[in-house]
Design a protein around this nucleic acid. Structure first.
Lengths: 94, 94
DNA sequence: CATGTTATTCGATAATCATCGAACTAAGGC
DNA sequence: GCCTTAGTTCGATGATTATCGAATAACATG
């Protein structure tokens, strides 16, 4: 990847992190230290489930989270590799 | 500062970093290792000077840069402390 | 198969954003 | 005092965004 593309990727990641609700989601996932479902996270944020789904889609799209499907639920967890590459030390600063 | 406020501050910083042109500005400043004027940076990005001024204002507003005024020019430099606090290791990953 | 749970998709809407050129301010040099 | 240089501010505009509720899809369980 050249610098142009790297910058675009970086700015996309920052854009995804620039919403307070998404930041909270990440903190919730990080501090829980386990997988969580959409509903579980959404409950803590008091926003509609469609909005939660929207945010989760964005987080997934830039590789910040990983999704495991099981039955009707989807379990989300942080993708530590992406954080390590683009935001070294960030998670620990939360 | 409580967590709510910290998250707002964080998301503001990320929002400022989520624009490719502002990211390039930061890279330019970082790699040059010195102060630069608005015009100097703007030249490298081929955007209008009003747009550059707009971006610089945002960077300053969240404390990512520092401005020193001298004669008609304004010299910009990165505020390393803000990076260290909110994005440890980020500059080195550029 | 009917019902309930979990999540996604689809408009719609109000808000925010990046960009420009033009007008303006401030400072120097002639 | 004028012109030049360096930045800022001010609309205006087109694009993107966050949010919601309603409709839909996928799966499980009675």
């Amino acid at each position: 990847m050249n610098i142009e593309q790297e910058d675009l990727k970086r700015s996309e990641i920052f854009k995804v992190l620039s919403d307070p609700n998404r930041l909270r989601m990440i903190r919730i996932l990080y501090q829980s230290g386990r997988e969580m479902t959409c509903g579980e996270v959404g409950e803590k944020l008091s926003v509609s489930k469609s909005t939660v789904s929207y945010h989760f889609k964005l987080l997934r799209a830039v590789g910040l989270t990983h999704t495991r499907k099981a039955a009707q639920s989807k379990y989300l967890s942080l993708n530590q590799q992406t954080f390590a590459k683009y935001l070294p030390g960030f998670l620990d600063s939360l």
